[in-house]
Structure formats: C-alpha cells, structure tokens
Design a binder for these strands. Structure first.
Lengths: 375, 375
DNA sequence: TTGAAAGCGCTAACAT
DNA sequence: ATGTTAGCGCTTTCAA
C-alpha cells in the first residue's frame, strides 16, 4: 500500500513529472495524446496527489479553519453543517476548533490553525471584547471572516443576522396581536447578540408601546436565568416576555408553567435563533429564525473574494434579515377569555384550568425542520 | 508579515538549521547555551514552524479526520466536542467531514481526507452496510477507529455504547416499577444502533415479561415515526413504550399527549441517547445516557495505540456501558390511581384530567447537562 | 508542447 | 553536540 507518486506515474506514462503535474492539475495546455497516456497511467496505478506536498509548494492547503465557541451550543451545528458543505463544494476542507467559550483557548487555537497554514479563517467569536486581539492579529495573516458574532467594528469582514430586524419583527407581531406590557429577558455580556438584541428591544418597544419599553432583566444566555428572570418580572404584570434567545425562552416557559401562568393566554413568550426542537416546546415557541444557510454561503463567498483578490480593500459587514416564525407561544388571546392578568402563584400549583387547548398540534408539530436522524 | 523560516532563526542565532530544528522539536539533546540562543532568536523573530513542511518531511500531519453522518443529529455535537478536545490535548487537529447521511458522500470525503494525509481516521459510519467498503479500504491506509456506530464485524477497531446493557437497564427499571405490557418503537434500518437495541429489547423483554416481549413497531429514527407508531401501538394497551432513541420518544410523548393519554400514569415512555434538553421534555424523559466523554477518550486512545505501534495486531472492539437516567416519564404510577388503561381518543381531546402533577420540576430541570451558552 | 532543474520549509541520516 | 547534506512530493520557472 505504499503510496504512488508523480514520479512513478511519469515513468509509467513515459514523460516527465512536470508534464504529469500539468495534466493532473490542468495548469497548462498539454498534448492530447500525452494527456491521455498520463491519465491512464495515473488511473492504473491508483495515483492520488499528495496534498501536503502540493500545499508546501503552491502555498495553499485548500484548508479553512473554523473556530467556534462551543459546538454544543444548539445553534451552531446547523451553521457548521452549512459552512462545511459550502466549503466542500469549493474543494476545501474544514479544520475545526472548539474553544470551550474561552477567548484564551480561542487565541491558542487560532495560532495553531495558522501554523497549520490554513488558507483562511472563519471565526465565530467567543467574546465581544476579549476575542478582538487574536482575531485582529490573525486577520493580518490570512483572510478572516467573522461569522454570526462580531468582536468590535472594523476588525474583519463579518456576516451576521440582523438582530435589529429580528427584534422589530417580534415586537411588531406582539403589538399587532394586542400585547402592551412587553418585558425583555436577555444577557448582560458583551457578546454582539446580547448587546444588539437588547438595544433593538429598547428602541422598538420605546417607539411602539404606549408606556415605553417594559422591564428588562439581564443575566446570561442560560435556561436557568430564564427561570429566575420570570420571578423578577412577573410582579410587573407583563402580557408578553421577549427573550434574547431560545434557551432563555425555554427557561421562561418552564417557570411560567410551574407557576400556573397560562401561555399564551396570560403571557406571550418569544425566543430568538430557532434552535432545533423549538417547535416541540409546549407551547411551541414563537421565535426568530436565523438564515443559517445564507449566513454560511455569504461568509464563504466573502472568503472566496479575499482569497481570489489580494486580501485588501475595505472591510465588509453583511447583515442578513431573519424570519419570524410564529407558533403557539404567542397566539392571540381569545377575545372571550379576558381574565385577570394575575396568575395563581406557587411552585406546586396545578396547571391552569384556563389553559387553552394547545394550538400547536398537527400544523406546528409537523414542521419539517425537526432533524430526522438515522442512527 | 512575511513568514520567518528556520534558516533565518539559524542565522540569527548563529547555528545551523538542523540545530534549530532539534531545539524547537526537542528531537535530540542540544547544548544548553545554544538552546537558549536559539529560543531567544526564535522568540525575537516571532518564528512559527510551518506544519505543512514539517508534515511533508516527517510524514505526519498531526491531523485526524473525523467523519460523521450529520452534525445536526443532536447526539453528535457533544461527541464531536469530546473528540476534538481529546485530540487537541495531544496536539492534533481535527479535519471535519459531514456526510449528509449518504454513504457515497462518506466514501468521497474519506478519500479526500486520505489525500490530505490525515494521520488517522475516526469514523461514525453513516450506514451499517453501505459504509463498509470505504471504511475497509481506508483502514488499509491509516489507523481507523469506528466510533459509536459500527459497520459490520472485523472491519476496524471500534468503540461504541453497549446497547444491550442500555436496553437491559431500561427494561429492568420498567419491570421493577410495575410495568408489564412493554412495547417497542424502533427503526428498521441496518444501523448498528437500530439492530442492537431491537435485539436487546427482544431478548430482555422475552426473559422478564410474563407474556414475552410486546408489540414492536419499526420505522426510522424520526420524530414523525414516533407519532405514527403510537397510533399503531395503543390498541395493544401497553403500559410502557420503550423507544430506540430520544427523537422517537419525543414523537411518542407528543402523540400521547394529543390523545390525552397520561404519561407516566397510563403509559411510561423511555428514550435512548440522552440528547440535550431531554430533561426539559414534558414530562422529562427517562433515557439511557451514552458515556460520551469516555467513548471519545477510548477512541482517541485506540488511535494513539495504532499510531504509536505498527498499526497491526487484532481488531479491538470496545463497548462502554451507558447509564440509565430516570426522569418523570417513567415514574411509578401512584398505587391509589389504578385506572382503566384505555385512554380517551381523538386528536383534539383536552389534556387528561387525571394527569399527575409534573414530577420533573426543580430536581429534573436543574440538571447541569443543559448547555449554557454565551451568544 | 515538453523536460530539466530548482526549490517550498522542514527533518533525518550521516558526518564530524 | 553540532554541521552538512539529502531529500519529502509537488509546482513552477526557464530552456529547448
């Protein structure tokens, strides 16, 4: 099983290694007959070009580094998938680096990828501030595109969801369906999603609501915080709780159910991201779906641009509009069921007798986005 | 930003490239003073070894190919994470290949990875039968370990969860808590998980149950099939439904709720895998947790073994025992609530008035396994 | 159109 | 302990 090299193909086909290289790489015109002989010999011997040697000589590995904070964040797998497919369609391979949400690890992984001579980097920044240094340095060496999360302006090309539009869609929807006391549960960090979604909420709510924006509770992007935030927010008697991501929304739904608060009867709840299975929450979660495939395609496109050109020119920042996915958790209240907005309290209270029949059923649960896996 | 090479470090430190290489790679003893000078010069110049050149010469890229069926399968991200971390701890990098559940794509991706001179392959086989050829061929070239899913015996080293033990745990638990009419919802494919879990169910149920194993419904590993299977299975009046994975179990829970069947009052439901958020299902899902970290560690260990040795010796097949995670979906029925096992039918029926208060609440939802993500 | 030759940056014999 | 010398397998001048 010793590997076949160009030399052997050259010998077998009776020409020089240079010619073989030209035929196989298609770099230059080659005589038809020679080409045929070469291809035949290569086929016969089962020749496979050694990409490492090729990379050393041509100074291009055909490899892209994909750096992300945590592959277990349920939003990322679909993004990774789309990126991987888009790159593979161009004959490139993906070196994966998971940073465990740690900017220092991130810096180390980026350095490692550069040592391995990746042609370019796709980075989902771990932190809005502390990722900046490493990203900036790396961008000086290879084309680099920030994906989904930025780390400060002007650092590198970036592609992300338009969080402002997403929040506007949510608030529009809630106001249109009669909600007026709309609160917000978000994260306090410096991540671009946390910051932008909060800002958008405040801007939109301030503009659309009679009493201005409602109560805001900031913690982190965890389910646990979603639960906690409910207890802090309920006394202000909201009729809608807008969450900065789906995990928070799930936490909120859990706690509301525990407390016997009816969703969407008493309170509407919305998320952000549309991670898998959100159509299966109870009630199914209204949320903002990030345009994952388009994000990946655009990022890869930008990389291609830089790789083809001289990696200069102005930084590009692309924002893609997301889509509102309306499900049961924000269904309008039945007009006949006007009730006190105060719900029974107590962790062990029985489910609200007022709960409307689930609106999700067939239509919502039949969503085609739920993964079907063969294992 | 032109890259610094060994030559320049050699010149700056006043010695030969060979010496510099030795100092930096630590291959051979070098004089203390020389070593210091070299390191200083390297540091000063910001030297970073070119891994591609190193790989070409030393015939080792320090890169492992990770081939998987679908990164969006919710079970895989955590596995990928553990593999990535374990490999990185050894200074190796991961080339990721997502196969879209297609064995032909899989074969192509494996070939591509071999061209890129990966030192070894970690393969989660896409298909129990059709993956075999490509895997076998690849295993002739580089060390290869099958992870989580096999593709026939004796093809390569393999590491997987002990499905038989997992199923035994489930059935033991159900029988111990008084269930007697235990049915099975699984997949008909040739995947090792589908086959082994079914076989284990039949063996265990046959041994433990008075009337032998119950009704078996085989489709695919999809939520949709879980829903469908419920309608087929209910007429046989089961008091427990064992599912071959969590997705099926979620589908089953959904449909049971739609039909007003009380879980766990009327029927217990169990899953397999413990994918993220199963503690958040309603009711929280009893399932079998795969030992993800140990699987990854073992696979990486096996690879290391082959990489260190001469890649011969007998094929190893390692099975790791999973753990039963008991949650609300299989809670014992309250002895006082003996009721007819026939549930009201009809898609739009209201939630069962008999439903017990959720047992999940604080303890179950407080699980530390739910990802906390910063985005 | 083809061939000969010179490396890409590094490691590993073989010298010393 | 260090230097010298050959390459790893390929692409790419430069000649012919």
């Amino acid at each position: 099983m010793t590997d076949v090299t160009l030399r052997e193909v050259a010998r077998a086909s009776g020409c020089s290694v240079a010619t073989v290289s030209r035929v196989l790489a298609g770099t230059r015109p080659v005589g038809a007959e020679t080409a045929r002989r070469v291809r035949e010999a290569a086929e016969e011997l089962g020749y496979r070009p050694n990409q490492v040697a090729r990379a050393l000589r041509s100074r291009s590995t055909g490899t892209i580094g994909l750096v992300l904070p945590q592959i277990t964040n349920p939003f990322f797998p679909s993004l990774v998938r789309e990126v991987e497919h888009a790159l593979h369609a161009e004959g490139r391979a993906v070196l994966l680096a998971d940073c465990d949400d740690d900017p220092e690890v991130e810096a180390a992984r980026i350095a490692d990828l550069l040592d391995r001579q990746v042609d370019a980097l796709l980075v989902i920044a771990a932190d809005g501030k502390r990722s900046r240094d490493a990203v900036e340095k790396a961008a000086a060496h290879v084309p680099l595109v920030l994906l989904d999360r930025g780390c400060g302006p002007g650092v590198a090309d970036s592609v992300a969801t338009d969080n402002a539009t997403g929040m506007a869609l949510v608030l529009d929807h809630l106001v249109t369906t009669g909600r007026r006391r709309i609160c917000f549960v978000g994260a306090a960090g410096t991540g671009s999603a946390a910051v932008e979604r909060l800002a958008a909420y405040e801007a939109e709510a301030g503009a659309l609501l009679p009493h201005g924006s409602g109560r805001v509770e900031l913690g982190d992007f965890s389910l646990e915080w979603g639960r906690t935030a409910v207890d802090r927010i309920l006394p202000s008697r909201p009729d809608a709780i807008v969450c900065a991501n789906d995990l928070l929304a799930i936490g909120v739904l859990q706690r509301l159910r525990q407390l016997g608060v009816d969703v969407p009867g008493d309170v509407a709840v919305t998320g952000f991201d549309d991670i898998p299975m959100m159509d299966l929450a109870d009630p199914a979660l209204t949320t903002v779906r990030q345009p994952v495939r388009a994000l990946a395609a655009e990022a890869v496109h930008l990389l291609g641009h830089r790789l083809a050109g001289r990696n200069d020119g102005p930084r590009r920042s692309v924002r893609l509009a997301p889509e509102l996915v309306v499900r049961a958790s924000s269904a309008p209240r039945a007009p006949s069921a006007l009730r006190a907005s105060s719900a029974p309290r107590g962790a062990s209270s029985a489910p609200s007798a007022l709960r409307a029949p689930s609106v999700s059923s067939a239509e919502d649960t039949g969503s085609t986005r739920t993964p079907e896996v063969e294992q």
